[in-house]
Design a protein around this nucleic acid. Sequence first.
DNA 1: TCCCAACGGGG
DNA 2: GTGTACGTTGGGA
Length: 832
Amino acid sequence: MQTIYKYLECRSFKYAQILLKKMSLLKFYPIDVTYKIIDDKPVVMLFGKALGGHRVCVVDEDFEPYLYVIPRNKEVADKISKIQVDDKGTPVQVVRVENVNKKYLGKVVNVLKVFTKLPKHLLIIRDVIKDWDIIELITEYDIVFVRRYLIDKNIIPFTLTDVECEKVDMGFKVSTFKIKEIKQDSDEIFETPKILAIDIETYNPNGKGIAPDVNPVLMISFYGEDFKKVITWKKFKTELDYVEFVDGEVDLIDKFKEIIEKYKPDVVCGYYSDGFDFPYIQTRAKKYKIKLDLGLDGSELKCFKRGRFETAKLVGIAHIDVFKFIKRILRVNLDTSMFGLNDVAYELLGEKKIDVELDNLAKIWDDEPEKLSKFCEYNLHDSYLTYKLLQKSIANIIELVKIVGLPPYDIIRMGFSQLVEWYLLRQAPSYGEIAPEQPHSDEIRRRRSLTFKGGFVFEPKPGLYKNIVVYDFRSLYPSIISSHNISPATLNSEGKGEQVPLKDEYYWFSNEEKAFIPTLIEDIVKRRMRIKEIMKEGNNALLEARSQSLKILANSFYGYLGFYAARWYSMECARSTTAYGRFYVNKVIEGAKEQGFNVLYADTDSCFMSLEGKTKQDAEKFADEINEGLPGVMELEYEGHYPAGIFVSAKAGTNGAKKKYALLTEKGDLKLRGFEAVRRNSSQIAKEVQGKVLNIVLKEDDKEKAMKYVRSVLEDLRKKRVDNSKMIIHTQLTKDTSDYYSIGPHVAVASRMKALGLEVGPGTIIHYIVTSGGGIIRDRSKLPEEVKQGNYDADYYINNQVVPAIEKIFEVLGYTREDIAEKEGQKKLGEF
DNA sequence: TCCCAACGGGG
DNA sequence: GTGTACGTTGGGA
């Protein structure tokens, strides 16, 4: 009754408005969504770009928070509507309860839809109800309010949206309209958002870690279409026309605000700007009491940090941390395992950072400002690379925005499982499904204790091989889930289904009706196939990106089913999926052996084999034959041919290491997997030797030359002919020296630096060289400037740095660790 | 062998 | 803001 009354009131009001011609129709692309409590009511605010190019905000005051309860008897509804609790002096109650029919894990159920006044009341109500034994389940109380709005209203960000509205003034920076009706009829996408990339350089005196409380921002660069600028507060002579000078750091921050205000970007991006640039600027601004009120509603920049989760948010502008998206999502398509801007830009763009000695910036800033031009170029170039990287990944991001239905701000900060979960949550209402509850601590603990067998691994025989072909089964799991109807709803349920190829467990999945999850996967797989079909007529970067995103999402479903925090978690489904996976990979291996290929290595979804005199055409034909025997959408891809490759042994024993190999591509590049003996904090000499050895072995196929090279390096090390600078090990201090329980070399050095009056604290990178002499290593670790050229501990560098980086490679070539030493005419190397 | 600290990205 | 959650790896005990 109340609902009907409200509806009529609304209709008559709307009618009156239209008569008075106050209403207008607005078409816009939503970019960012948030909400605020105004007059004790939640108000959803959608910021976006209107057709015509101006930025707008539309607000909706008529959306109510709700949750679902599955009751065990008829009294529950009544009992719930009578709940009266107190929240810090404010009474909280249920607004109303509706009876609805829904499905829970495929089964039809009667559900109570419980409405409250404010979003946070849902959690309070849930706390009251959760232990009642007259309820079966309480769920969806923790769906983020604005996401609930987008799902229920069927609004996809970056997609053209029609709004019937009325202009209002809420004091925002953009025209604001009150929504009477909102809907999306078209699937037209906002393809050309205005993007602004930013990057900062900070004062960072030699060896010091990052300390925003102490060290100022020196320069800020901006890069957009037809826009480049560097602002700095030290004046010097320069020919760079994009450099602009201000009087100090305060002016720098003011100018930063001004540029963003004037440029009016839809998207702001940086590289690790969630964890560095924005929080750094915020800390500096706070120090000067400058308000960073860049939000389109006048709100300030918000930076959060909780554990590893760091983020920076600007209301109305989509802040994209390019690093985060690449590291979390795009990484599956990258060869690099290093996610610094330099490595990523090199792989994706073929461009590198400008090579400057960043350690010298502080000194040059203080003493030789005339040399700052180079650093301004460097600063701008980083923004340029970030801009280019976003340009390269924006199609992927937008595709995920389209499928998952959340704003880019959310999408780029999500991992695979979250993307799947929000895709499921978005789709659930269309299938009449309500979501399972998120697991709580006990359940999480229980789930984490369960394990399951992963993919099948055919262990490689360590060795150097020629003419390797690689097959890839990357869509294996999604296609298995789809074609075998794997889902919590069909598990061991009524109806026929074949038994999963597992020895000690008996699962089957009913194939009478396609379930929720397999349907969605099939949808994605088919969507991708359609795109691939179009791509055959002519390749296109946009379609490629769309196909890539669909693949990413499809591939994430299986991991999701076995992920402890998933709502639609099912250990049985995860186990069955991998069981089928092992079954099919083994089928490929057996087939290859029969045809005379030499199977070198297989892991989960890929298979490596050498041609053994066969041709590349034979290899492609083999894939076709396998494909003919595969059910449904399953497909084996011929990934490519590599002229040479090396598989090395695992750390212990002689078995081949999983995921540890180097391949030489037909273009002549090295494709490295798992050679982690060389890390960022390894000495330069170790990195150098590993790279060179792999190059000689794979490109020139000359193991003697490689051995000769290594011997000469070891000889140089012993004869103290290697420059000290290649010996420096860099390790970051993460807490105060006194807080360390175990004193590693870097901690010992840091303590001594402190004693010398040097400023050392959390974040400081300690550079040290291990010098020769007796006793434990930490006592022999010295600051580089304390060490005379050549006074390093050659044995330490040989045994702990250089040899570990290459020994596995030489083992494959038939040399032992001792061989390297003996032939050199020196004493044996240390224990191994 | 197990367990805990380090590390990532940024300057 | 109906939240805020790492995941891997190496070294030392």
